[in-house]
Design a protein around this nucleic acid. Structure first.
Lengths: 295, 295
DNA sequence: GAGCATGGTAAGAGGTCCTGATCATTTTAT
DNA sequence: ATAAAATGATCAGGACCTCTTACCATGCTC
């Protein structure tokens, strides 16, 4: 029923009207002049009305053509806008990535990653939120964010996990603590010291050191509070190295040598659903960044 | 630079998303299934990003595809709207005609013409304005209106004139006037009677009766005032028959037999400019209406 | 009237698009 | 578990469309 108005003929009409002639339009569109004539004739046949006056030497729009012109112009402009936007989106020059990470990654890794990312992809909008690792998994699974950077203790259904780095677990204590200087540190040596549990303590579960947790009376989830406790000398805690804020002068990180514990930090995304171009770019960027050692 | 997004592939994407599969989309679009696959593949290559997930049995949009979908839908809808409007305009189901006529035509001819026109072309908007004949010509020439119905005393540059009917000139007087019953009326018989000139009196110019005008002291342009004068018995006047309002019980129209004078009423439009589809329909309608004798 | 512009027309090459048959894979039914 | 059905992908062939080259008709300029 409706005739299919192809865009090329519409562009021809616009060019003829703007450039003031078939030949000029042909030059402008890099086509031969007969192509313009035929495109216009075909379009006029589809519409059932001439767009240009015939017979006279000059090209002049009929009233019908004048009526059509602005509508054609709008339609072509609309097409170009959609085309440009889609291309920008596809070529990572525009778009948006939502990422969720655990706080330690957000504060220690992401600044460097994002600093270089925004240079490479200035058009991409980034939304970074942090939360504990289960929240990160949930948000990725729910589709609220496309990418997550976290540690997975168990392979989760519907999530793809791409390992990025190993983050070793250690003991954090004040610099005047007896354990502060030790380097080969066995978990048994922690017995008797006051241990403060925190959000990452469940990383010890399943290891011989797990029984330490049973003798711990303090649980602090907030990192600020935790460091304050440690600085006050109230006790020691275990943390992944990445979660240890090195700028605290009086705190020391002592890696656990036996058993050697670590969390595997990686990228997670929904399985079976491909990423948006922007998120794919971010994924590649993160992997390349960490492969180069965080340069 | 910008890829040319043809509409057919876009429709394919919409159909796949709406119908939930390539085969369903093919049935819906009355195409074969490979055509759909190829159209999508071509579009994906142009954009540089896949729109549908590959590998899985089912067709599912990628995030990029989801982003594109509403934009594609808008663009296709825009095209269809333009196409439908242009087609309606071209096939006289929509549009607008601006006409200017002399008052006599507007009041005596146009009601019948327009009554049947609006039945045949219910979608066309009509704008009718009246004015004296020079004003009609001016407006047509200036492009303010596309069509005019008037009497032309001289062929005017840039105007095409299509004769429609002959309107004879006669004398109008009160029913008790000495001339009221006369039928073969010679212009010499008007001598001595008080003649009121009006806007149509210049139709006498160039005829033997022109000298009558010199002995006339009254000029009334307004038709209401003029008939009031005539009904008061102040004098007589000359009018084309069409301009004589027959519903005035006490006034009589006596055709001038010698010289026989008439004005030629016709359609005028700008020369060299074709009419809008709606105006062309009106032109044909007027000519057909008057050729049939005003049925 | 020669020359240059306008746009229109005809024939052929090239590309696009569609179809029909076929294949690989997944899902569903028995 | 096996058969059956449905999904989308692929390929070769042909119809169709579009563009180009060459040529024609007309109007304007000098």
């Amino acid at each position: 029923m409706l005739p299919e108005l192809k865009l090329q003929p519409l562009r021809c009409v616009l060019a003829i009207a703007d450039q003031g002639g078939f030949h000029a339009a042909a030059r402008h569109l890099h086509r031969s002049q007969p192509a313009i004539s035929m495109a216009v004739r075909d379009l006029e046949e589809r519409l059932g009305q001439p767009l240009f006056e015939k017979g006279n030497g000059k090209a002049a729009l009929t009233p019908f053509g004048q009526w059509c012109l602005p509508r054609f112009r709008e339609l072509v402009a609309h097409h170009d806008r959609v085309s440009r936007d889609a291309l920008a989106m596809a070529s990572h020059q525009a778009g948006r990535v939502d990422i969720a990470t655990v706080p330690s990654v957000a504060s220690r890794l992401m600044p460097g990653i994002l600093a270089s990312f925004v240079i490479d992809y200035p058009g991409i909008e980034i939304n970074l939120q942090d939360g504990h690792s289960e929240l990160v998994s949930q948000r990725v699974l729910a589709g609220e964010v496309e990418l997550g950077i976290t540690s997975l203790w168990q392979a989760e259904e519907g999530l793809d996990f791409i390992p990025l780095l190993h983050d070793e677990i250690g003991v954090v204590c004040r610099d005047d603590h007896p354990l502060a200087g030790r380097d080969p540190l066995h978990w048994r040596e922690l017995a008797g010291h006051a241990l403060i549990r925190n959000g990452t303590s469940r990383l010890l579960e399943g290891s011989p050191a797990a029984e330490l947790l049973e003798h711990s009376a303090l649980y602090i989830s907030n990192m600020i509070s935790l460091t304050a406790m440690l600085e006050a000398g109230i006790g020691i805690t275990t943390l992944p190295r990445l979660a240890f804020q090195e700028e605290h002068a009086r705190l020391r990180f002592v890696p656990l040598a036996e058993p050697r514990l670590e969390r595997r930090i990686g990228l997670i995304c929904r399985a079976g659903v491909s990423l948006s171009p922007a998120a794919a770019a971010m994924q590649r960027h993160v992997m390349a960044y960490l492969a180069e050692g965080g340069s």
